Computed example of a mutant assay.
Amino acid sequence: MSYIPDDLRFAESHEWARPESDGTVTVGISDHAQKALGDVVFVDLPKVGRVLAAGDPVGVVESVKAASDLYAPVGGEVLAVNEELIDTPELLNEEPYDSWILKLKPSKRAEFDGLLDAAGYKAAIGE
């Protein structure tokens, strides 16, 4: 059973999104996703300043089992990436909801509202 925080929204592609008080959105991968991937060994991060549409590929998470594309749960400009993941990608396994991947300045608030809530994500992954 995966841990799914109630204060996050989720994309069906298993990224989580957390709204911040400054209007930005922090993005990472879900506990369910990191368990499915196994031991994460590499994270390809997007470039700061890149403008994304919702659903655009933004990077790759590689594990000992597979490589999985990361997708933007909402559109916007990449404001920051978690460079700590370059040297310690396993943080995504250890703390999937504390180990963010990128921060976005969202272009459309409605996209965030369209993401799955915790109950919806739980149903989507069959838990």
Rank of each mutant, 00 (worst) to 15 (best):
E15I: 06
D87Q: 12
A66P: 03
T26M: 00
E84H: 04
D69A: 13
R50V: 11
G55W: 00
I86S: 11
G59C: 11
P73M: 03
L92R: 04
Y3N: 14
T88S: 15
E90H: 11
V78T: 01
K35P: 02
P19C: 01
E94T: 12
G49M: 05
K105P: 00
V61E: 05
L115G: 00
I125H: 06
G28D: 03
V41C: 08
M1G: 13
M1Y: 06
L92P: 07
G76E: 02
P73Y: 07
L104Y: 01
A36Q: 13
R9H: 12
L70I: 10
L116P: 02
G75P: 11
K108F: 13
D113V: 06
L92A: 01
V78Y: 09
A80G: 02
I101D: 05
A118I: 09
S107R: 04
L85M: 07
D22Y: 01
V74H: 04
A123P: 00
E83T: 15
L70N: 05
E12R: 14
E62M: 12
Y71P: 01
V74T: 09
S30I: 01
E111Q: 12
E94C: 00
D22C: 03
K35C: 06
E94A: 15
E77P: 05
P89K: 04
A110R: 14
P46F: 07
D6V: 12
P46I: 08
F42A: 08
D113N: 14
V60L: 15
D98G: 15
V60I: 14
E111H: 01
V60D: 03
D113S: 13
V48L: 05
L79D: 00
L45N: 00
E90A: 15
E83D: 14
V60H: 12
T26V: 10
P57R: 13
P46K: 04
S63P: 07
E83A: 13
Y97N: 09
S21H: 08
F42T: 03
P5D: 08
E12M: 02
F112H: 09
A67K: 11
V81K: 01
G49C: 09
G120D: 08
V74Q: 11
P5Y: 07
P89H: 13
V60P: 12
A67P: 07
M1C: 13
A54H: 05
S30G: 06
P96V: 03
V41D: 13
E83G: 11
A36G: 14
I86P: 04
P19H: 04
A33G: 03
K47Q: 15
S99C: 07
D56V: 10
A72M: 10
N82G: 00
L104Q: 03
E111C: 09
I101Q: 02
T24L: 05
L102Q: 00
A11L: 14
A118E: 11
A66K: 11
Y97T: 01
G126H: 07
S2L: 01
S99W: 03
P96I: 13
S63I: 07
V48E: 15
A53M: 10
A11P: 05
V78G: 03
P46H: 01
D113E: 15
A124P: 00
D6S: 13
A11C: 08
S13N: 14
V78E: 00
V51Y: 03
I29Q: 01
G76A: 03
N93V: 05
G75V: 11
E12Q: 08
L52K: 08
E62I: 11
N93G: 02
D69F: 06
E95I: 13
Y71A: 07
I125K: 09
